[in-house]
């Protein structure tokens, strides 16, 4: 048993890409990691009110080897995929360790104050740099030997190799916020930037809650309220100008629905809103909010459909009686 092959060896040609995705969910320090044959899933949670996860599909890696752990006993139980917790801040900093070393970046930053000798020195060490060989930036390798061992990240760039062993902690809970896909009260797809603008707009009054109200007549409004007052942003599919593309790609709402959330929780998804191109916003029958962000990745030479990844957020609604009762028609500001 001592010479088991490592459970996971995954090589990515772009640490930057992984960084972009993982940053979306970096609102807490700890992240739960689940490794399976299909990929690595990172998730974070805030209390049990919100959770976010990003699935790094194996196609995102240039090579991905998963050796299922041996079954605990001779019976043919399917072994559970390994789950553990790591310090997400540390992982992000590690992936970004060469962030400042991008030669183009460095040159632009230093500009004139860098004399020729120093430039020569820099270039000497960069003779085989990624740019010279037109290689993607930041090759990194993830490896995990098995339960109790650290998650190792190995990176190599500009003649320096960095190895980081992240201590793995036992996952405290593996419960997820249930989301009922079969009884959707609302489903709409919009540009992530529209949602970001909305949240930014509403956050100026540091509100406590945000209420999402939707009516079957193709109308959705976001209302924030707090001690300083309330504000509403409305979206509609009935675009007055037929020339412009509709702001809502899809809109499905069987009957009027409304749910309120803690504003801070929705705001935690802001980084994802900034990185993503589109977002699918759904409410289920219980009022649980699901935000699924589509992040386009800048992958060269990849087949179509492989250059995207999804970042998911789920938020539990506040109990009824809070943040209700704003009309949504009066005093609203239309966006198109």
């Amino acid at each position: 048993m001592a010479t088991n092959p490592p459970l996971l060896t995954a090589v990515s040609s772009s640490a930057r890409q992984l960084l972009l995705l993982l940053r979306c969910i970096s609102f807490t320090k700890k992240s739960r990691v689940r490794i399976s044959a299909e990929g690595i899933r990172f998730s974070t949670e805030e209390g049990s009110l919100m959770e976010a996860f990003v699935f790094l599909e194996k196609s995102l890696f240039t090579s991905y080897t998963y050796n299922a752990p041996p079954p605990p006993c001779s019976q043919d139980d399917v072994p559970a995929p390994p789950v553990f917790e790591i310090n997400l801040t540390a992982l992000l900093e590690t992936l970004n360790i060469f962030g400042l070393l991008d030669p183009a970046n460095a040159m632009a930053k230093r500009g004139g104050e860098f004399d020729s000798f120093a430039t020569h020195r820099l270039n000497r060490h960069n003779a085989f740099s990624n740019h010279a060989l037109a290689m993607p930036t930041g090759i990194c390798t993830f490896s995990y030997t098995g339960s109790g061992s650290p998650l190792s990240i190995h990176m190599s760039e500009s003649g320096v190799t960095t190895t980081c062993d992240l201590t793995t902690y036992e996952a405290s809970t593996t419960e997820e916020i249930p989301f009922n896909r079969d009884s959707l009260a609302l489903k709409t797809i919009m540009r992530a930037s529209s949602l970001q603008d909305t949240v930014t707009e509403l956050s100026s009054m540091s509100p406590e809650t945000i209420t999402i109200t939707a009516t079957p007549t193709s109308n959705i409004s976001f209302t924030s309220s707090g001690s300083l007052g309330s504000a509403t942003v409305d979206f509609t599919t009935n675009t007055p100008l037929s020339t412009s593309a509709p702001i809502l790609d899809t809109f499905h709402c069987p009957r009027k629905t409304s749910a309120s959330f803690k504003f801070g929780l929705v705001k935690a998804a802001q980084r994802a809103m900034a990185s993503a191109t589109k977002v699918s916003l759904r409410l289920d029958g219980e009022g649980v909010l699901s935000l699924q962000f589509l992040v386009e990745l800048d992958v060269e030479g990849k087949e179509e459909g492989e250059g995207v990844a999804f970042v998911d957020f789920r938020v539990v609604p506040l109990v009824e009686g809070e943040g209700d009762g704003v009309d949504g028609e009066g005093g609203s500001s239309d966006e198109d």
Binding site: N87, T89, A90, E93, T94, N96, I97, F98, G99, L100, L101, A106, R110, A118, R121, L122, H125, S158, G159, V160, T162
Partner: peptide, 21 residues
Amino acid sequence: LPNLMQLKSISDRFTKLALST
């Protein structure tokens, strides 16, 4: 030593890591 700017940028990140974790 290797290029000090590179060494500094990595060292600073380590320091930041130490403080953040």
